[in-house]
Amino acid sequence: MSKNTDYILSLCHSLSEKGLTPTVGLIRSKATRALTVPEVISTLKRWKENPASYNQIASDEMAPTEHASSEATLEARVNKLEKEVAMLKALIEKSRTQLIDN
């Protein structure tokens, strides 16, 4: 199986353990890396046909470092977005000031 297939299967397993039904949109929203719709659809279809057989594989593949790295990645993304928002606010304020001065 490809790395993305294993990753998608682990997301399916994780979602189902939380009582959620895995869907393409839910999987893509929870993913910390880019996943194409066709690969999510095909993997999700295989998982739905026999979730129990894939859940064991997904459990074996899921490592605590994956969770820790995804949390760190999310934190880094949030920090980057906060900086971009602050920069955009400053740019808007500067533009507003220039418009008022003219």
Rank of each mutant, 00 (worst) to 15 (best):
G19A: 14
G19F: 13
G19S: 12
G19L: 14
G19N: 14
L20C: 13
L20S: 09
T21Y: 09
T21Q: 10
P22L: 10
P22R: 09
P22G: 05
T23R: 10
T23L: 09
T23P: 04
V24L: 12
G25H: 07
G25I: 01
L26H: 00
L26S: 02
L26A: 02
I27V: 14
I27T: 02
R28Q: 12
R28L: 06
R28M: 14
S29K: 14
S29Q: 15
S29D: 13
S29G: 01
S29P: 01
K30H: 14
K30F: 14
A34E: 15
A34Q: 13
L35E: 02
L35I: 03
L35N: 04
L35M: 10
T36M: 09
V37H: 10
V37L: 13
P38C: 01
P38H: 04
P38V: 02
P38F: 07
P38D: 02
E39H: 05
E39I: 08
E39A: 03
V40M: 04
V40D: 02
V40F: 04
V40T: 05
I41N: 12
I41K: 15
I41T: 11
S42D: 09
S42C: 05
S42I: 05
S42L: 09
S42T: 12
T43H: 06
T43E: 06
T43Y: 08
T43Q: 09
L44A: 09
K45Q: 12
K45T: 11
R46K: 15
W47I: 08
W47N: 02
K48F: 08
K48H: 11
K48W: 07
K48M: 10
K48P: 00
E49L: 13
E49W: 02
N50Q: 07
N50E: 07
P51E: 05
P51F: 01
A52M: 10
S53M: 15
S53C: 11
S53L: 15
Y54L: 08
Y54V: 01
Y54H: 10
Y54A: 02
Y54T: 01
Y54N: 00
Y54D: 00
Y54K: 02
N55Y: 03
